[in-house]
């Protein structure tokens, strides 16, 4: 009843961090167009297991586009071509029968490949460690209405805070820069009164960790915004630039 398609997958296979890795071709048949991209990989993996082969490792968790775990570069684009969509929310109806799909891991020095399509994004956690929070201890807070926050600022802060930390921005950037990720976090707090006390120290510490992790510099290509499944604006990078300059003088 369902419409199905058959495809050829060209998938990056790499046993571990030391393995040089290579592409392998896999034909997949009769995939329902209602299946998600990851479900299509599930089907292939079940087939591989039954054939006694090692299934393709890929990260995934919530499969509803919010946890930021999944992600691969599909035909040259992180999370595939569809805008504002994570790989788990990309459905096969966007492909045609007979297509060849090339699937590669996110590529960045700061994201070493762990296995196949799985990369290590702990560099993001280390950046957050340096200041992606307001240093308030449980129990210290005043009443939630002690400080009013202008709605436009609160809304902009929320827009920035929507980042799911999937790292598609880095994968898409020709320089493998993490400026959109860091910009979003710094913006979220720079826009709120709660974030003011640590505003300068946060911008300095997070940028310095970002550089130490080996991410590239931003050259205003805006590929990050195009790849971001949450549509986070590059104006957050502009704000990061401003915050950094402000905190340097």
């Amino acid at each position: 009843m369902d419409k199905t398609i058959s495809l050829t997958l060209k998938v990056w296979r790499q046993k571990n961090a030391e393995d040089p890795g290579k592409f392998e071709l896999y034909p997949v048949k009769d995939i329902s167009i209602d299946a998600s991209f990851l479900e299509m990989l599930d089907v292939l993996n079940e087939q591989l297991v039954l054939e006694g082969q090692v299934p393709i490792a890929f990260d995934h968790d919530c499969r509803e586009g919010i946890c930021g775990t999944c992600g691969a570069v599909v035909n040259g684009r992180p999370h595939g071509r569809l805008s504002k969509t994570t790989l788990c929310q990309l459905h096969m109806r966007h492909y045609s029968d007979g297509d060849t799909i090339v699937i590669e891991p996110f590529r960045a020095k700061a994201f070493p490949v762990v296995k196949d399509l799985v990369v290590d994004r702990s560099s993001f956690d280390r950046i957050v460690r340096k200041g992606g929070y307001v240093s308030v201890r449980t129990g210290q807070a005043p009443d939630a209405h002690a400080t009013a926050v202008s709605k436009p600022d609160a809304d902009l802060s929320m827009d920035a805070a929507q980042c799911i930390g999937c790292a598609a921005c880095v994968a898409a950037c020709p320089n493998a820069s993490a400026m959109l990720f860091v910009g979003a976090k710094v913006s979220q707090y720079a826009l709120l009164p709660q974030g003011q006390v640590e505003r300068k120290i946060r911008a300095q510490a997070m940028v310095s960790q970002m550089d130490a992790e080996g991410f590239g510099a931003c050259s205003n290509e805006y590929e990050c915004e195009a790849a971001c499944p949450k549509g986070i604006s590059v104006s957050n990078i502009a704000r990061l630039n401003r915050e950094f300059l402000r905190s340097s003088i």
Partner: peptide
């Protein structure tokens, strides 16, 4: 620094309209 940030490139190159 940016060249160093991605030593292995992608097999398929594709840019968005943003760029």
């Amino acid at each position: 620094a940016s060249r160093r940030a991605r030593k292995i490139g992608y097999a398929v190159q594709s840019s968005s309209a943003q760029r």
